[in-house]
Amino acid sequence: MPQVTLTVNGTKHTVEVEARTLLVEALRETLRLTGTHVGCDTSQCGACVVHMGGDSVKSCTILAVQCEGSDITTIEGLAAADGTLHPMQEAFREYHALQCGFCTPGMVMSAIDLVNKHPDGMTEQQIREGLEGNLCRCTGYHNIVKAIAAAQDVMHGRVSELARAAAE
């Protein structure tokens, strides 16, 4: 079986996989990182989104062998070692941007990439369009959009909407 070496959340792993093994299968079944979810089989729902070299990708549509040498970040790798949440995670909690939690890991990973790729900030409409690759059935996206709008300010070091909301 092919061998693949990849760095996941800062830890280097070498695993044996079939060539047909998807990245998400390697993460969930071999590395037991079950925070990355599978919600469809047509590459649309985005529950499986992780970062590969900093870019959001659907881990259900990449072979593990294609990730040789790459740097993968999953939802488990976002919070600081002391438990401090990433600003996007914190914003999702503050704005009630999750209900059942199933789409949440992919949604958060997509949202972070989206914010990173828009250093000048996004309008509500841009955020909505930017979430095209992620489905949520619980929230109606309403609070997800609000959370991302707040988190982008924190991530870009602008006025801290979160701090303000928390103070209220």
Partner: peptide
């Protein structure tokens, strides 16, 4: 084209 994740790959 597609979505952000498709454009990234």
């Amino acid at each position: 084209i597609g979505d952000t994740q498709v454009r990234n790959r």
